[in-house]
Design a protein around this nucleic acid. Structure first.
Lengths: 401, 401
DNA sequence: TCGAACTAATTAAATTTTTTAAAAAGTTTT
DNA sequence: AAAACTTTTTAAAAAATTTAATTAGTTCGA
């Protein structure tokens, strides 16, 4: 097979990932190739049993177009979602985007080689345990906190490998293409490919959790900035509150709006003797979040108040984004999104206060429908994003069998 | 000539605008066509005397590549730069990007049809007076203040034409393709095509004048937002100063950092009896700016103090941009840029205070080298940007003669 | 219910474009 | 002065697109 035909096949497979079912004409437009060429490649892929015909689309006044989709169990991606304390690894069938298997590991991130080799061992072990052959796995996508330079493959905050490429190190050992990115970018990719931001060109995805991350979709593509550090929304100077931030400055957005701050404030209130259905805040971050959010959902006044105040302050930050980007959509995602629609009213309130009405009128704010799986699925999107760019031995094998 | 060959010719001409001189190989890469095809088209264009061979590039270790450039006096663009009170119209030779002729008109912008028809008359009269035949003019590019929706051709702040397209109206009368855009976007285009932002992928251009505008270059292209309103940097909520802004809110960046604010502050100081080489601030905005800036350059303490304070506050806004965009470059442009390097120190000071060092280290801040002509030249860039997209009768005529 | 009008898919031929390769023409380096 | 290198030119082969004609299936309205 010529290398060009292979490229076109990849482009088609890429379009059909994540459960997409498309007609020959639609595919021809998306891969920007002529219909005869697209049809030929499509037929080859069906012969190779990687694609299947899957029914007809409804007619728009004429013959119904044949639709194509991936065959299940043929193409997988391994995805890794990391935070400071816990790492989850999953394997995802690209046909339906289901997480076939996932596992949780305790891995405290530090800025040294040790975390990296541990991580690699975990991934390797996981793949073996999954029982899925490597030639069916397109690659490994890893979302991690910190300052990640995607091009250099370096994380300046964690997993230091003497400034050398992290993906290169892992690829060496597990023999699969590896891609890394910042956790907020990965969550934004999920919203873009499978979530509320599908088909949008200009969307801001806010990752509310430990801090406040931002993934930006600009012109329909994830924007990472010049060194991959774009979206450091957490630390824009927004308040004059004299509160010291983890970054060393004061008045950062993060000093008022993050789940960590809410937890701290809740502790203080309880210490002051405030009544609440919450008796004690758990030490574990994830449990603490769940405790406060579910208390709020159950109507606990203190929890509601804390979350609403946070949302209002976040709204001021969002107002800044609207002025700068004029986005069509803002998606609230990440762990904090599980507080749900409760957050929307104060955010909208702040937007009304801090935005020129002409601008805010064009931007919708919504809550992500994804639960915790957003980052895991985004890791798959990360691999697919690079699928028609980077050389992958796996597909060649798959296509030649 | 086939329509495809015409398209390729336009792509090549587009690359050679603004005084660019390129080799066949460079052009082939830029228009993304093969070298044999590019060479063929190039030869045709030379035969038609629209292009000329213009010397050799220096060798990089082998045969010196032949370079090509536009022939002077063949292709012009009419450019219009508007502000609230004054409109300048110029005609620009694309070969060397010189302003062949320009004229100033007093035109007070209002939100009605009258300004629009006056503007159209001025443009028409100017073209006639220039003595350049319309078949040599590729189009008209207009930069104007206000909320401009480029796609719809509508300005929501000024020049209302009952919500109908402004370019369509002008095109009808002057029979040339017309393009409009926001003034800050146009200035950013100038920096991208001819100024300090050439070849950058990710640059913020700040238009310091009446207010504070922002033109964003993202992935090497001007970013306008979902409705063309992106870059409303003026009105991000940044201060808690209780100062009412023209937009109705308080604490906007613009309430501390714009030349208008500096002028107001200067007046107040003088009224309070402060000593200064400035005796009286002229009523005219442009003259007032010049007075204060030149006083500062001559060492007047009051003028220096006012400008440095403004620059420091602007630096806080720039810190926000750096956190969000991680840009490689920030260009300070517009009328305020004539204060020059004086502004850089306080801006850098503010960046150091409000930015995470890891981030700010990657961003350079510079002052534009353009004087007032930036907006006029940008209008030309606006036409060229659309030159291989929109149908232009003019080029077909030009190429068929 | 039956065409007319429409949309989609298929096929083949003509045309365009790219790729590949080789040769020619200069430059620089050694 | 030869070797190494780069760009340009040319030509032929391969690939892709365009065009047009045909076939196939749907919808809609008379």
């Amino acid at each position: 097979m010529t290398s060009k035909a292979l490229l076109y096949k990849r482009k088609i497979l890429k379009e059909l990932c994540f459960g997409n079912v498309l007609s020959a004409l639609e595919l021809s437009i998306r891969i920007e190739k002529s219909l005869p060429l697209t049809t030929r490649i499509l037929n080859e892929l069906v012969d190779e049993q990687i694609l299947k015909e899957s029914g007809y689309a409804s007619s728009t006044g004429g013959r119904r177009p044949q639709r194509y989709s991936l065959v299940a169990g043929k193409m997988y991606v391994v995805s890794v979602a990391m935070d400071q304390l816990v790492t989850r690894i999953g394997i995802i069938d690209l046909q339906n985007c289901d997480i076939s298997l996932s596992q949780k590991y305790n891995l405290v991130l530090s800025h040294n080689d040790a975390s990296l080799s541990t991580l690699t061992k975990y991934i390797n072990g996981f793949i073996k345990k999954s029982g899925i052959k490597k030639d069916k796995i397109l690659g490994v996508g890893i979302g991690m906190p910190g300052f990640v330079d995607v091009d250099k493959g370096v994380n300046y905050s964690f997993l230091d490998h003497k400034g050398e490429s992290i993906p290169a190190y892992i690829e060496e050992i597990i023999e699969l293409p590896v891609f890394i990115d910042n956790d907020s970018s990965v969550i934004a990719l999920t919203e873009l490919k499978l979530g509320s931001a599908i088909n949008t060109k200009n969307t801001m995805v806010i990752n509310l959790g430990w801090g406040v991350g931002l993934g930006m979709i600009i012109n329909g593509k994830l924007f990472r900035g010049n060194n991959g550090f774009a979206g450091e929304f957490s630390h824009i100077p927004l308040f004059e509150n004299n509160k010291l931030c983890a970054c060393g400055k004061s008045g950062c957005l993060e000093t008022e709006t993050s789940l960590l701050v809410v937890i701290e404030k809740a502790k203080k209130e309880l210490d002051k003797g405030r009544v609440s259905i919450i008796k004690k805040i758990p030490a574990d971050f994830e449990e603490a979040c769940n405790t406060i959010i579910s208390a709020a959902i159950n109507g606990d006044q203190m929890a509601v108040e804390l979350l609403l105040n946070m949302a209002y302050d976040l709204g001021k930050g969002i107002a800044t984004l609207i002025h700068i980007f004029n986005p069509e959509l803002i998606v609230l995602s990440g762990r904090g999104a599980s507080a749900g629609n409760m957050l929307l009213a104060p955010i909208q309130h702040a937007i009304n206060k801090y935005c020129i009405p002409r601008l805010s009128a064009y931007t919708k704010v919504i809550i992500s429908t994804f639960s915790k799986s957003a980052e895991l699925i985004g890791g798959a999107a990360l691999v697919i994003e690079n699928y028609d760019k980077k050389h992958s031995k796996q597909l060649i094998t798959l296509l030649n069998n």
